[in-house]
């Protein structure tokens, strides 16, 4: 297999660029929180490298700070990250033909943003080598995340919330959601999922998202069967 296509890598990098300030800001928050919770610098780096999933890292850091038992922290991380199993299933057919080592590397870099941008790109374009665009999106996110968690724990500095830079993240999902609602079934999926997720926003462990997505998929199937 040849090396990934540079023009597709650049395209991915260009698409992910507006997300960089938001991910940097979130990375700083996680770094600062890790420092305050008593993580050493190597441990904060270890958490970012091994887990590499912001919401679950922040939850784990808070639980460690509060002296939660080992199992509670592990279960929390697993439940918060369970949504990525949906992404893994959804994107798997696009990665099927890559070598095992590549698939493991692509899986390690899987995030909400890498999944969302890549699956949308694959569906709108005839992509020959799916690694290139994905790496263009996922690797910059990884590098910014690692750098900013380190800066956060070392410098202890955050970007003020009022600047609103993290708002770029939902805007990207919104930009991808609109063209994804292309028929009755997908519109039903989005409407039900969004409503359930909003209603379940107060649930612990990001369960609102899982419940929303699950109900949304069910709604799509029902809408398809009724039609």
């Amino acid at each position: 297999m040849s090396i990934p296509d540079p023009s597709e890598i650049r395209r991915g990098a260009r698409d992910v660029l507006p997300l960089v300030p938001a991910i940097a800001g979130f990375g700083l928050v996680v770094g600062v929180a890790a420092g305050n919770a008593g993580f050493t610098i190597p441990q904060a780096i270890g958490l970012s490298v091994f887990v590499f999933a912001g919401a679950s890292q922040l939850a784990a850091i808070e639980l460690v700070r509060d002296g939660a038992p080992f199992l509670v922290v592990v279960v929390t991380v697993v439940v918060i990250n369970l949504r990525m199993m949906m992404y893994s299933a959804s994107i798997s057919s696009y990665f099927r033909d890559h070598a095992e080592r590549w698939r493991a590397a692509l899986a390690y870099l899987l995030t909400d943003q890498a999944y969302a941008l890549s699956i949308s790109h694959y569906r709108e374009n005839d992509v020959d080598d799916t690694r290139a665009y994905y790496l263009g999106v996922a690797f910059p996110l990884w590098a910014v995340w690692q750098t900013c968690t380190i800066v956060g724990i070392v410098a202890g500095a955050n970007i003020p919330d009022s600047w609103g830079i993290t708002f770029a993240v939902p805007l990207v999902f919104l930009a991808l959601l609109v063209p994804a609602m292309k028929d009755r079934e997908s519109t039903a999926a989005a409407a039900v999922s969004g409503t359930v997720a909003a209603a379940g926003a107060g649930l612990p462990l990001n369960l609102g998202l899982l419940a929303g997505a699950g109900c949304g998929l069910l709604a799509a199937v029902v809408a398809g069967d009724v039609a």
Binding site: S92, F173, L176, L177, A197, A198, G216
Partner: peptide, 28 residues
Amino acid sequence: LPPRAKRVLAYVPPAVFAALVIPEFVAY
């Protein structure tokens, strides 16, 4: 994956994107 599973998975993007977006605007 079996065709039925693939059919359901085709709706993961709209379902997940909506679940990620809507609570940023309105949440209970």
